[in-house]
Nucleic acid binder design. Structure first.
Lengths: 133, 133
DNA sequence: GTCGTTGCAAAGCCTTTGCAGGGAA
DNA sequence: TTCCCTGCAAAGGCTTTGCAACGAC
């Protein structure tokens, strides 16, 4: 990554405009709004470079695969909505590392994934009570 | 799953003889010790059926993909060793759900993944100090 | 004899890679 | 002009699927 190109600028811009972790498909779709010719291979290549550079970090969604988000944020975990499949960033961490693993295990890192329903989907559900079937 | 076949018995036996979450490749390899003709497609089909039946549950390893383990165990999480790449089952749960997500989010499930080094690898490391390069 | 199950091969995702043309510096 | 970057297509891993033969009951 030594040259500034429209493609790379577009991909970085996608992340600057969206806080939540994004799937490759979303990055491609949104990036094409700036650069219609944007190719999936370029997206993968750029994501790889940005991840190696430390500008992005990977987030593994249990069933939707690999997502990417900006790095440099405070320690946090993620919430996956079962209804809209969106990933949210959760502030803070309520995991107690002390005693999380038996003696002898050296804990170097951890990840917490919560799943359920997000505020938007819980709200939509109530409105839908009188919606057409 | 209505008929008892040597293949299915072999796959179930693999899980009965191993506590830790297993990768598809491991299941195939160990299953072939009983049924040499065992095919990868049969393994995938059987794992799917056993998972739908609730006899197995999937565990997602951040970088090694999907693993499978027996269900019906007490609530627990997993530890992945960075050195031997093995997955371990951790007893208990030290995550505090209260306050784990902001108001409005409904938490229905959660997963915790710890990573680092397992006792076996930490021990091996010490012994290796005098090993040949 | 039925019809669920298996092995094999082909196909489907997702991701990576080889290559020649194109564009930033 | 240089040579890094891009698009395209092919290929690689993992998983699923179509199909004919097989075998549990």
């Amino acid at each position: 990554m030594k040259r500034v190109t429209a493609q790379r600028t577009a991909i970085e811009e996608v992340f600057n405009q969206c806080e939540r972790p994004l799937a490759v498909e979303e990055i491609l779709r949104q990036g094409r709004e700036s650069v219609p010719s944007l190719n999936i291979a370029t997206v993968y290549r750029t994501l790889k470079v940005l991840t190696e550079k430390g500008w992005l970090v990977k987030v593994y969604h249990p069933s939707f695969g690999t997502l990417y988000e900006r790095s440099g944020k405070a320690h946090h975990h993620h919430f996956f909505c079962r209804e809209c499949n969106r990933a949210y960033e959760l502030p803070g961490c309520t995991l107690i590392l002390d005693g999380a693993a038996p003696a002898g295990f050296i804990i170097e890192d951890h990840e917490v994934y919560l799943s359920g329903r997000c505020p938007a989907c819980v709200g939509a559900e109530i409105i839908d009570y009188n919606a057409a079937p």
